[in-house]
C-alpha cells in the first residue's frame, strides 16, 4: 500500500508481522513435523538431531495401507523387478507386502477405518446440522412454551464430560446391539453435536429478518417453501460454520470410538495409535496415517472458508 506511515507505525507494522510469523511457526511446526515424517524412510524418522533434508518416499503410505511382514532375505532380482513400484519401496525398507494365495494384496486395517471415519462423520454432521437448523428455526420463529427451559435442556446434554457417560452408554449400547456399528456412532455423534448445532443455528436464524418470510407468505408461498427458498440461502453462512464445527468434532472424537468400537465400525482416531503397540513402532507409518487423517478436515475447511470468516464471528460483524 502506498499509505504514508510514521516511524512509529512502521515499527508497529513490522512488529506485528514478526509476531504473526512466530505464531504461525508455532502452529505449523507440528503439521510440518508430521508431514515430513510421513514421507521419510524409516531409518531417518527417529534420528537425533532430526533430519530435515531427505529424499521423500512413498513407502510409509504403502505400509499404512497394506499388511506386510519382515523379509528374512532380500528378494531375488526377478521378484523385485516384477513387483510394481510401490511394492518395491517396501522391499527397500526390508519388508514385503503380504499377498493371498491368489496373489491379491492384503489390505491393512487402515483403509476401512478411514472409510468408517468418513461415513460416520459426514452422516452425523448432515443429521446434526439438518435437525439443528429445523429445530432452531422453530425456536426462532414460533412461540414455544417454555422455550428457555427447552434450550437450556438441549445445552445441558453437553455439560457432562464424555468420560462420565461412556460406561453407561457402553452398557446400553451392548443391550440394544449398537456396539461396534456405524449406526451406533452416528447416533452418538449426532446427539453430541445437535445441542451445539441448535444453539449456533438459532443465533444465525434470529438474525434473518422475519419480514422476508412474511413477504413470501403474502406472495403465495407456504411456510415450507419460504423456509427452503428464502431462509436456507440466507442461513448458508451459519450452516457452513456449524457444519465445520460438527464435522471436526465427529471426525476427531476418540474416547467413545475407542470404547464403543473395535473392528467393524472402528474409526481412524483409535486405530492410528493402536499401531504403536504392534511390534516395534514404525513412526513413519503412524505419521502417514495422521497426515491422511488431517486431509479431509483441511479440504472441508478450505472449501467453506468464505463462509467461515463471517460465521466464526457468530454474526457479530454482518455487513
Amino acid at each position: 500500500m502506498a499509505a504514508v506511515r510514521t516511524k512509529g507505525e512502521m515499527l508497529r507494522h513490522r512488529l506485528s508481522i514478526i509476531s504473526l510469523l512466530v505464531i504461525l511457526a508455532l502452529f505449523l511446526a507440528p503439521i510440518f513435523w508430521i508431514t515430513a515424517t510421513a514421507f521419510k524412510p524409516r531409518n531417518l524418522a527417529t534420528t537425533v538431531p532430526p533430519t530435515v533434508f531427505f529424499q521423500p518416499e512413498f513407502s510409509p503410505f504403502v505400509k499404512l495401507m497394506t499388511k506386510r511382514s519382515q523379509l528374512r532375505s532380500a528378494p531375488t532380482a526377478e521378484v523385485y523387478n516384477a513387483a510394481p513400484w510401490w511394492e518395491q519401496t517396501v522391499f527397500d525398507g526390508g519388508e514385503k507386502v503380504v499377498r493371498s494365495g491368489k496373489g491379491e494384496v492384503q489390505l491393512s486395517g487402515f483403509p476401512s477405518r478411514f472409510l468408517n471415519s468418513l461415513i460416520i462423520a459426514i452422516t452425523s454432521t448432515v443429521l446434526a446440522v439438518g435437525m439443528g437448523t429445523i429445530t432452531a428455526y422453530g425456536f426462532s420463529r414460533f412461540k414455544v412454551a417454555g422455550e428457555d427451559d427447552w434450550l437450556f435442556f438441549i445445552l445441558s446434554t453437553r455439560m457432562l464430560p464424555p468420560v462420565v457417560v461412556a460406561i453407561p452408554m457402553f452398557l446400553m449400547y451392548r443391550v440394544v446391539g449398537l456396539n461396534d456399528t456405524h449406526l451406533g456412532l452416528i447416533i452418538l455423534y449426532t446427539a453430541f453435536n445437535l445441542s451445539f448445532s441448535v444453539w449456533l443455528m438459532k443465533g444465525f436464524i434470529d438474525e434473518i429478518p422475519k419480514e422476508y418470510e412474511d413477504a413470501a407468505l403474502v406472495d403465495g408461498y407456504t411456510r415450507m417453501q419460504a423456509f427452503f427458498r428464502i431462509v436456507l440461502p440466507e442461513a448458508a453462512t451459519g450452516i457452513a460454520a456449524t457444519a465445520v464445527f460438527c464435522f471436526i468434532t465427529a471426525w476427531n472424537e476418540y474416547a467413545f470410538a475407542l470404547i464403543m468400537t473395535n473392528k467393524r465400525a472402528q474409526t481412524a482416531p483409535p486405530f492410528i495409535p493402536s499401531q504403536v503397540g504392534s511390534g516395534l513402532p514404525d513412526w513413519t507409518v503412524i505419521a502417514a496415517g495422521t497426515f491422511l487423517f488431517l486431509v479431509p478436515v483441511a479440504i472441508f475447511t478450505f472449501l467453506l472458508r468464505n463462509h467461515l470468516l463471517r460465521g466464526m464471528s457468530f454474526g457479530a460483524i454482518r455487513k
Partner: peptide, 14 residues
C-alpha cells in the same frame, strides 16, 4: 396469507 391474494409493502426487508 398465501390464499388471500393481497400484496404487502414493508418499511424494509421485503
Amino acid at each position: 396469507a398465501a390464499a388471500r391474494d393481497v400484496a404487502l409493502v414493508l418499511q424494509q426487508y421485503s
